[in-house]
Simulated scan of single mutants.
Amino acid sequence: MAESDFDILDDRFRTLVKTAANVERIWTGGRWTEGAVYFPAMRSLLWSDIPNDRIMRWDECTGETGVFRGNHGHYTNGHTVDRQGRLVSCEHGTRRVTRTEHDGSITVLADSYDGRKLNSPNDVVVRSDGSIWFTDPAYGIDSDYEGFAAPQEQDGDFVFRLDPDSGRLTVVADDFQRPNGLAFSVDEQTLYIVDSGFSRYKDGNRHIRKFSVNADGSLSGGEVLMTCQTGIYDGFRLDTEGRIWTSAGTGVECYAPDGTLLGRIKLTERVANLVFGGPKRNRMFIAGTTSIYSVMLPVTGARTF
């Protein structure tokens, strides 16, 4: 029964899912899938298979999957699409944020701060003003599994903003144990950021914080909006009504804008990230540990490009 794919914890969730719609596995064979990103013009989904050092591509029209790029020592993690339709990627292996141009060439956007190498950029979003925001925990240098083991050169695990005009990199948050997924509200006045410190520290953080975005690009506030009870949050997205759909243990949890848990999409393996795609942005693609899943929903994902 498809209904078994969902936990309805609040009556409002009944209108956000179709219990007749199954969660489908559209690909398997990864070691740790992450960073799902959808390209409307190509009707294609890209994602990272980090330990295998490759980016995969799935064609929505044919259902075929192949390697988009791999075996270059990049160990990419999170991706997004910028306003010009270019792929922006976080790379653990090279410890940098890059942009793939329309001709296929790669531009390095950031690889150091204050004269020292970044840790291992993890997740990234682009605001409508062209600024690029990314998290920089040390997962990719902790071991050789998702990158290359190396000493940490930064003084912490920071959240950065890259100015689109000057190219200047600034720290916008420095009090995270392990900053991870991030996303803007629909009006871009709020930035939500995951702290997945629990993955590293016994009593570490496992919550999403909420910041106000100031006119000068700085952040203020930072209160905890919700705390994960089923593992840790990782990557997440918002729908057009401001609800947060986030990875949480072996599922995707949906929260009202005030942080109330409404319901859960259940899977059988740990979820890393998700993205809305399809022609109507109402098909959710979910990156699990070894596989990519999808489910059709009666909601529309917020535009991120």
Rank of each mutant, 00 (worst) to 15 (best):
W58V: 03
I132R: 05
G130A: 05
H72L: 15
E101M: 15
G93A: 08
F148H: 14
D136H: 02
R69K: 13
V125W: 02
V67R: 14
S48T: 14
S105W: 01
E34Y: 07
S44Q: 15
T76M: 05
D129C: 00
R83Q: 12
R86P: 10
Y145S: 03
E153Y: 11
E64L: 11
S48W: 10
P121S: 08
E34F: 05
R86S: 06
S120V: 02
H102R: 15
R69A: 15
G35T: 12
S143P: 05
P40I: 06
S89I: 00
G70F: 04
G73E: 08
H92D: 09
G73N: 08
C90R: 06
W58K: 03
G130K: 07
G130W: 10
S128M: 00
C61G: 03
S89A: 11
E153P: 13
S131C: 06
C61Q: 06
V97G: 02
A150Y: 01
G73C: 09
H79Y: 12
N77H: 12
C90A: 09
P151W: 04
H79C: 12
Y75C: 02
F160V: 01
F39S: 04
L87W: 06
R99D: 00
G66A: 13
E64Q: 13
A150T: 04
V126P: 02
E146H: 08
G78Q: 06
D144E: 08
T80V: 11
T98G: 00
A149S: 04
S128E: 07
H72Y: 10
S44E: 11
D157E: 15
V108D: 10
T76Y: 06
D129W: 05
N119V: 05
V67L: 13
Q154S: 08
V67H: 13
F134H: 04
S48Y: 11
V108Q: 11
V88H: 02
E64V: 14
L87D: 05
V67I: 15
G35C: 12
R54C: 14
H79T: 14
V159G: 00
K117P: 07
